[in-house]
Structures are given as structure tokens and as C-alpha cells.
């Protein structure tokens, strides 16, 4: 319904073909059941069950009065399970959640799992490296890898941008705001006078 009226201004750029996918925003009515969302609903149902079952294992101190630490978990577990059942029913009937829109998201683009994968690996890697090589260096590598996964060109520029930004942020937050972030031996020596 929303994409029905074509935008006259966008259509002129369509001639080039380059912008066509972004411009023809008519949402294709999806057919069938969304397996991904069904999986999420199953996980949600599992969470509800887990809450209900594990709540029974919460120790209740003898001295506690009528309402102990189990009551609210039972309540939440019940709500979660009921929601999962109702949502599961809807999803099985073909209901689909409208994917979140964002200015930088192309709703018609196929999911780029490689980009997501690289970012996940880069982030995980930097988490493990922080205490070894310091935050600025670890985060520079992460920054460059993420930028590269998102289509930044070259090697030098992403590394340079990440390096400059991370050292600047590190100095502001560590030296001016006293946030605890390991700087790495070199940077900590170099900025010892600050």
C-alpha cells in the first residue's frame, strides 16, 4: 500500500538503473511462513518454559514471607510462554513482522551473511585482544575490519581512520574522564606525561 504511488523525482534516476532497487519500494507481499521468525518464536517459547521450570529451582529461604523470589519469574514465564504460543499461531498462519527500516537499510537487499559474519568475528577478536594489546590497537583492527566488511576501500585508510579515532577517544576518556581502558604498553608510555 505504501509504495503504490511512485515518487516522480526518484523515477528520473531510475533510468540509470543504478538506483532502481532503492527506488521501487513497493513491498513484495511475502508468501508462506517465515522460518526465521518461527525459530525465534520457538526460542521464545523455550525461554518461557525455562523460566517456569527453573523458577521452581530458586531456593526460597524459610524465613521469607508469602511472596518469595519465585512469584515474579512464574509471572514472566507465563506471559512469555503465552506470547510465544499466540505469536507462533500467527506466524504459522503466514503473519510476518515488518522488518525494521532504517535510512541505511535497503529493504529489498538480500541478507549479506558474509558481512555479518566478518563483523561478528572482528568484534569477538577484539574482545579477546583488548587485555593483550590494549584497547586502541584492538579496536583499530576491529574498526578496519568492520569498515572493510561494509565496503570501505583500501587497507590504509580504514586502519588510519580507526587508529586516529581510537587513540583520540582513548585519550579523552582515559586521561580526561578517567575511564579505565587498557592502553597497551606503547601508548601508556607515550602518554605517561598527560
Amino acid at each position: 500500500m505504501s509504495g503504490a504511488a511512485p515518487d516522480p523525482d526518484v523515477s528520473t534516476t531510475d533510468a540509470t538503473g543504478a538506483h532502481a532497487s532503492a527506488a521501487s519500494r513497493a513491498p513484495a507481499p511475502p508468501a508462506g511462513i517465515s522460518r526465521g521468525e518461527l525459530a525465534m518464536v520457538v526460542l521464545l517459547g523455550a525461554l518461557g518454559l525455562y523460566l517456569l521450570l527453573d523458577a521452581a529451582n530458586i531456593a526460597v529461604p524459610g524465613s521469607s514471607n508469602t511472596i518469595g523470589p519465585r512469584f515474579f519469574p512464574y509471572l514472566v514465564g507465563g506471559v512469555v510462554l503465552a506470547t510465544a504460543l499466540a505469536l507462533g499461531f500467527r506466524v504459522l498462519r503466514g503473519d510476518r513482522g515488518p522488518a525494521d527500516e532504517s535510512e541505511d537499510v535497503d529493504p529489498d537487499a538480500p541478507t549479506s551473511w558474509p558481512s555479518v559474519g566478518i563483523i561478528v568475528v572482528a568484534f569477538l577478536g577484539h574482545a579477546l585482544l583488548i587485555n593483550v594489546i590494549g584497547w586502541p590497537l584492538a579496536v583499530t583492527l576491529m574498526f578496519a575490519l568492520v569498515a572493510w566488511a561494509l565496503g570501505a576501500r583500501g587497507v590504509v585508510r580504514p586502519l588510519l581512520a580507526g587508529g586516529v579515532l581510537s587513540v583520540f577517544v582513548w585519550i579523552v576518556f582515559v586521561k580526561a574522564l578517567n575511564v579505565a581502558l587498557p592502553g597497551g604498553t606503547l601508548l601508556e608510555l607515550a602518554t605517561g606525561w598527560l
Partner: peptide
């Protein structure tokens, strides 16, 4: 390059016309 939301060197709309 198409990597930013705004690229004023890319012609669209009235200037393109």
C-alpha cells in the same frame, strides 16, 4: 561511491533534469 547517505556530487531530481 554510494557509501554515504548524502553525496551532493551525485545528480538527482531538479539538478539532474
Amino acid at each position: 561511491r554510494g557509501d554515504a547517505l548524502v553525496d551532493e556530487e551525485y545528480l538527482q531530481g531538479d539538478p539532474l533534469r
